[in-house]
């Protein structure tokens, strides 16, 4: 339960998709002129992320990662298909978006009318593919956590686009220098918001340190797990690099 809570706050605030990793910036900038459209796109992103991340988790776990094919029989245990992950993830996303569009159109025409135009856009939103790729590089352990990760990243993205849309509606009445109007001021405001979100960084460090110590202790006792630990640390380092960048 605690790790679910931690992952939730981490993905909504600390490593917010827009402010920490700049995912989905294109639609974030293009569709944030009005609050109502921003809410529509944000809701669609939450929905698609919550569906595609667990699906891609299954694909990653049982098809793509090193030795994932072991369930087919011992002779398949050596295959590492992870180089195929880009193409499979994007295929899942494109199909799911189409499927979701058809289902929503059939069962809830009113929701379709409000989301409809945004759904096709979402297939090429980097936030969606980014969610799946981060899920893979962070080694999310269970499908429940994967669902949680997708949902909470979506909520973080929703929060960001809602905030910037509200600011842009108000900023129209301010006297912004002419060359900065429109795109320029949006960039700078987003930068300032990202500085604000940086301050959430201290929120979860206590939990993280405990987890690291535990990892080190278990590695000391069991030398067999040494390799696994190295792999984990490598992933963590690369993830931290991405975050720092």
């Amino acid at each position: 339960m605690l790790e679910h809570l931690e992952l939730f706050f981490k993905s909504v605030f600390v490593s917010n998709m827009v402010f920490a990793t700049f995912l989905g910036m294109c639609s974030y900038l293009a569709v944030s002129k009005k609050v109502s459209t921003a809410v529509g796109l944000g809701a669609a992103v939450i929905f698609v992320l919550a569906v595609t991340v667990p699906l891609n988790w299954l694909l990653d776990q049982y098809l793509l990662r090193d030795g994932a094919l072991a369930w087919l029989g011992p002779e398949y245990a050596d295959y590492d298909l992870s180089f195929l992950s880009f193409i499979l993830f994007i295929a899942t996303i494109a199909t799911m978006v189409q499927l979701v569009e058809i289902v929503v159109e059939k069962f809830s025409p009113s929701l379709y009318n409000s989301l409809g135009i945004f759904l096709p856009l979402i297939a090429v939103n980097c936030a969606i593919l980014g969610g799946s790729l981060f899920m893979q590089s962070r080694d999310i352990a269970t499908i429940g956590l994967a669902f949680n990760y997708g949902l909470s990243s979506g909520i973080g993205w929703f929060l960001a686009i809602l905030a910037i849309a509200a600011i842009r509606e108000k900023i129209r009445y301010s006297n912004v220098p002419a060359p900065l109007r429109g795109l320029g001021i949006t960039f700078i405001v987003t930068g300032l918001m990202a500085i604000g979100f940086n301050s959430f960084g201290g929120m979860l460090t206590g939990g993280d340190e405990g987890a690291k110590e535990e990892l080190q202790q278990s590695a000391k006792t069991e030398e067999v797990k040494e390799d696994v630990k190295k792999e984990l640390e490598k992933n963590e380092v690369s993830f931290n690099n991405v975050q720092n960048n």
Binding site: F19, F22, A178, P179, G184, F187, L192, A194
Partner: peptide, 17 residues
């Protein structure tokens, strides 16, 4: 840190326009 990337791009846009 990441926020400065946004602000640097904002400044490039400012200069260009």
């Amino acid at each position: 840190l990441s926020p400065m990337a946004l602000i640097v791009v904002g400044i490039i846009i400012w200069v260009q326009r």
